[in-house]
Design a binder for these strands. Structure first.
Lengths: 208, 208
DNA sequence: ATAGTGACCATATGCTAATTCGGTCACTCG
DNA sequence: CGAGTGACCGAATTAGCATATGGTCACTAT
């Protein structure tokens, strides 16, 4: 039951048939290996052996090892994002959606940090190196944020004077300490109170 | 005994007479060498040679090479902070003080980044490794922020309901993208508009 | 007692050679 | 023609070692 709504350039770095024959096997093997041994310590020969084919065959499906890393990273980020979307979905007000959306992002990110440290490192690397997977993720977060704010403006919860783009980009920046993997790790102590405080500050700013 | 709360001591890592001509010579030499060759590429033997004494003598004044690095770092951060304090001083309203204080911090930080890249790297390292020099700097920034907010509350510019500590720590976090050296470098594009947007957001939040 | 140091040690750093690894291509096989 | 691969190449990584470096201490000279 994969949601195939608006996959934004998730296929960057892909080659050959987009359909899921061998490609999914590669991704599964990469997920397992990157999670157990780390991105740097697994070779594409390892992945090839895991799926029972030769190394060269991997490159019929992916441009590079980094492309595989991006796919895994995108998968992790997708899990975080979909959990956040789900959490925000069953909130009544825009305010509550806002709170749940961002606190779920942070919650799931810290879960990844503690439970899948090596995958977290991959995501952190993706963020600092501005890989497409991370950029796409941030773009989708901002898009969701925009929808929540628009909703809040319609329902009268939020003020309407400030240009929407300005509000969105400012919030994205202010929330960076809890979204950017490197900063999140840095700000672990004090969670979740610290995040609640920033969210409160932002919501006060959004008040009409 | 020392202070009961763990405020980082500016003289941490110092040895021997606190006020000594040789200490200042060491700091001057370190400032020059770290700025020209970088912290990693200058040896304490280099500093010793620069001031005309033996390497061992350096250790009569500093615990370690890192302690010297912290002193230089503290000096850089002090320059930034004092410029920001000066800029905020001749502002009439708390709102204006807030704007000038933080935009000067960012301005001076980026100046350091472009003009003294090697010293900036030292400061960045200090921040990520949470050296006392960086912690003390952040503590002083937050202290100044608290004073500005208190002023604004007295003059009626800012709201008074939210607990002061909560407001301060939330603002410190929200401004991290423009204060933390690693994030600042990451967010260089879009400055200064991006910062203005976040400052606007925060000021809207502070409105009564 | 104070100012200052050479000799010394353990660890970190730089360097070179050997190996591994990412990536490609001509090629086979069915 | 398409699925699949062994052999190959240059760049990157590792291993091992020589050297440099951070840091200490007993010591001298004043």
């Amino acid at each position: 039951m994969t949601t195939d709504h608006a996959l934004p350039d998730a296929a960057a770095g892909h080659r050959g048939p987009a359909d899921h024959a061998i490609r999914q096997q590669i991704i599964d093997a990469a997920d397992a290996h990157f999670g157990r041994f780390g991105y740097g310590k697994t070779t594409v020969a390892d992945l090839a052996k895991a799926i029972g084919f030769s190394k060269a065959y991997i490159y019929k499906f992916f441009d590079s090892k980094q492309a595989i890393g991006e796919a895994i990273c995108a998968q992790c980020l997708e899990k975080i994002l979909s959990a956040a979307l789900l959490s925000a979905a069953d909130a009544r007000s825009a305010t509550e959606k806002f709170r749940k959306f961002f606190s779920t992002i942070t919650l799931k990110s810290t879960e990844l940090l503690f439970q899948e440290r090596l995958l977290y490192d991959l995501a952190a690397n993706s963020a600092t190196e501005q890989w497409p997977s991370a950029l796409g993720y941030l773009a989708r977060v901002e898009e969701t944020l925009r929808e929540i704010i628009l909703l809040g403006r319609e329902t009268g919860e939020f003020e309407r004077k400030t240009p929407l783009d300005e509000t969105c980009s400012a919030i994205m920046l202010a929330m960076q300490p809890f979204m950017h993997p490197l900063l999140l790790e840095f700000n672990l102590d004090g969670l979740p109170e610290a995040q609640t405080r920033v969210i409160n500050l932002i919501l006060r700013s959004l008040a009409p």
